[in-house]
Write a protein that binds this DNA or RNA. Structure first.
Lengths: 121, 121
DNA sequence: CGAATTCTTCGACGTTCATCTAATTACAAG
DNA sequence: CTTGTAATTAGATGAACGTCGAAGAATTCG
């Protein structure tokens, strides 16, 4: 019976919690990091992030993003939601449209965790 | 019709290829990075890596790793294979047992790609 | 209010994935 | 060559994922 990944709300903020000093990674910390990596580990989501990062304010709305990845709006909405609930994007309504914006620190935090091997201590 | 992820052999080495200068991430580069992130985006594999990183030579054999994550040996073998074919681990036979070892540069390369936003340019 | 636009939710479908047990291969030592 | 140990492969099963079209909010404007 596979242990299912929790929603981000059930997990520590931004990245990877306190991280004990045991030789092996605690299962909960592993899950917390895996949830964030999983949010990034999709070609469509990476392309969406790439497009957003290339924008002046690193933001755009759904209707602009759908053509970029050549997928239906519901599908793009689904991906954006995943990125948002993983803490990688923010979501803001402006009139009729919704603006998603990159949180660079979130990506940096994940990168740093990997790079320093902090998740393994 | 979902575009399926290719095996690592079909994709650029270590990380993310030439990366053009377009504003949007090319689909192939996105896939290449996604394949590697996906290999990391699993709690069990993160735990396995954590254990390996904590070992003197950052290596261990399958039979030692199975108890660490409390899963069957075939399952662990499956995860190790995924990490190996993604270029994150090396595999070496020594008599009856097989030693897996971490390639730290592989992890660093992924982290750096994320951190610098290089995959988005 | 009613119509138009943007976005999300819902329900369905096929694919991918993690896991197990059982069978198979690879190697070492009697 | 046979036995024993380590590791993988094969096949099956259930969960999670990506995708779509259709239907349902939310907001603006006439």
């Amino acid at each position: 019976m596979p242990k299912t990944l929790p929603l981000l709300d059930d997990v520590s903020p931004i990245c990877c919690g306190p991280l004990g000093n045991s030789a092996t990674l605690e299962i909960d910390d592993a899950i917390a990091l895996a949830v964030r990596l999983k949010a990034l580990a999709d070609p469509v989501r990476l392309q969406l992030l790439a497009y957003l990062l290339a924008q002046p304010n690193q933001e755009a709305c759904t209707c602009d993003l759908a053509p970029v990845v050549k997928l239906s709006e519901p599908t793009v909405s689904h991906h954006l939601k995943k990125l948002q609930t993983s803490g990688i994007l923010t979501k803001e309504r402006h009139g009729m449209s919704v603006h998603y914006r990159v949180i660079p620190e979130a990506i940096h935090a994940i990168a740093r965790t990997l790079d320093t091997g902090a998740w393994a201590r």
